[in-house]
Nucleic acid binder design. Structure first.
Length: 489
RNA sequence: GGGCCUGUAGCUCAGUUGGAAGAGCAGUGGACUUUUAAUCCAUUGGUCCAGGGUUCGAGUCCCUGCGGGCCUACCA
């Protein structure tokens, strides 16, 4: 069996035999680890004792140095680390320290001191077990490196790796800063359904589930868009939602089937207004949370400082792919050219999809610094307003950074008649074999028919932004519990 | 789906031509009253992923399966 766990259970029983609960319901705590450290650091350099002050500190035992008749322990709580020192002549029942293992939570009563090496320390006069752990934390020096265990058992990763604690702390602060930015600009945060009768608003396959009470299938949302625009119709001029969406696709460095998306919709704005807002939001959040707009990512140095480059879809293809779409204006000619260039694409791909494949091949990997790629082909943008003077393009941009797409925005299509035509074109693509084409959404059309004001909309993958902001090369390192295959018994 | 890699103690990892399964950390016992990857002495701990095969002999070679990672493809 697990001999090490059995030893720890025996120690818990030994504590009970002494009349103390190894899992007490309440604890004495007067100071965090960080608070004690700060108190001692504030002392004059020659002061070593603070006997007038008594503190109760708590935390997990993460270090232990037995010194005979003195024992040093390192405790870690949410604020940081604090060293405690027990000496045989100032702790009754000194032998009881043998009941403390790595990973246990204990409380220590004592006075702050400074050791001869200058280390802030609590000189303990009493200790209590707060939680007996049955397993040791990961090995203290080499830590926990196995990516699978780090992700499946993130609690071990968090115990072992400071960088992991940092990444997810940053994530939390970034999410809060984004909310603060939008709230301060008068946006209203809303919540829309995750379970939907039809999953729309993006080109992606959905997950399907079943609603027992109604005997109907439901789809997990693949975007937030269509419901948020209904709210603009209803009169909420500025709305946003930050939430989980689900796309039934593979796993990869940039892909997790559930990820966090933020979408904003602002009435009386267009895609240029939205671009200005997004620049300000992302660079401002970076500055506020991390104190910089420069980040190391996959060997590059990425600057999120404003302004970001703007280049049109067509110009970018000319620049990075030496491909002039004007010379290949239809499926036949562009398809032939891409075949000649050995760019893969599905046989069912329409013209817009071919353009997108060319962009993915030539442009996307080169867009390391944040770049707005402007004015997309209309076929792959069924919810965006067409560009005045060019019926083949729409007012849409995607934001790229680090060589991948991180966000998407358009001047929203609000002509209900044209929107119906666009849906019908999508249905034709679907019939031709494109299983990611947009579905007709009659209720959404009915909403548009009541009038949606001119609106600028925006969506961004929070996880991908976090990859840049934390310097993590894969999306799995910025998601606490990324998807994995089920472990088979 | 394709390619490459990988599975050895609780953790991190070695293991040579195929010849008695190892180290550090953790654990246990001991020394040490200012250490901080403490140090020192001793010591417990193994279904070498699983199943087959080759062989006098397999952690090592072969086959199959299972698990996992990375790259790639589809996809944001």
């Amino acid at each position: 069996m697990d001999e090490l766990a059995a030893q720890r259970i025996a120690k818990a029983e030994a504590l009970r035999a002494r009349g103390t609960d190894p899992y007490p319901p309440r604890v004495a705590r007067s100071h965090t680890a960080d608070a004690v450290n700060q108190i001692v650091e504030a002392w004059p350099p020659d002061r070593t004792e603070g006997a007038d002050l008594e503190v109760d500190v708590t935390g997990r035992v993460v270090g232990r140095r037995d010194q005979g008749k003195a024992t040093f322990l390192d405790l870690r709580d949410g604020s940081g680390r604090i060293q405690v020192l027990f000496r045989q002549n100032s702790l009754a029942d000194y032998d009881s320290l043998k009941l403390i293992d790595f990973g246990d939570f204990i409380g220590v009563h004592g006075s702050p001191i400074r050791t001869r090496t200058g280390q802030p320390t609590v000189a303990g006069t009493a200790w209590t077990m707060l939680t007996k752990a049955l397993h040791a934390p990961p090995e203290k020096y080499h830590g926990l490196a196995d990516a699978e265990i780090r992700q499946r058992r993130r609690y071990l990763d968090l115990m072992a790796n400071e960088e992991t604690r940092r990444v997810f702390t940053v994530r939390s602060k970034v999410v809060a800063a984004i909310r603060r930015f939008l709230d301060d600009r008068g946006f209203l945060e809303v919540e829309t359904p995750v379970l939907q009768e039809a999953a729309g608003g993006a080109a992606a396959r959905p997950f399907v589930t079943h609603f027992n009470a109604l005997g109907e299938d439901r789809f997990l949302r693949i975007s937030l868009e269509l419901h948020l625009k209904r709210l603009v119709v209803g009169g909420f001029d500025k709305v946003y939602e930050m939430g989980r969406i689900f796309r039934n696709e593979g796993l990869g460095a940039k892909y997790n089937p559930e990820f966090t998306m933020i979408e904003t919709y602002e009435a009386y704005a267009d895609y240029n207004d939205v671009a200005a807002m997004v620049e300000e939001m992302v660079s401002g959040v970076a500055e506020n949370v991390l104190g910089t707009t420069t980040f190391a990512f996959r060997g590059h140095e990425i600057s999120l400082a404003r302004p970001w480059r703007r280049v049109t879809f067509h110009d970018a293809l000319r620049e990075y792919g030496a491909l002039d779409l004007d010379a290949f204006p239809d499926v036949a000619t562009l398809g032939a050219e891409l075949r000649r260039r050995k760019v893969d694409f599905a046989p069912t791909a329409g013209y817009g999809k071919l353009c997108d494949e060319a962009m993915s091949a030539y442009v996307e990997p080169n867009l390391i610094q944040p770049t707005f790629l402007m004015d997309y082909p209309i076929e792959i943008s069924p919810l965006a307003k067409s560009k005045p003077g060019n019926p083949r393009l729409v007012e849409r941009w995607e934001i790229f950074m680090g060589g991948f797409e991180a966000g998407n925005a358009y001047t929203e299509l609000n002509d209900p008649v044209e929107q119906r035509v666009r849906f019908e074109e999508q249905l034709a693509l679907k019939a031709a074999g494109d299983d990611e084409a947009e579905l007709m959404d009659e209720d959404f059309l009915f909403a548009l028919e009541h009038g949606m004001p001119p609106t600028g909309g925006f969506g961004m993958g929070i996880d991908r932004l976090l990859m840049i902001l934390t310097g993590q090369p894969t999306i799995r390192e910025v998601i606490l519990f990324p998807q994995h295959k089920t472990v088979k018994e």
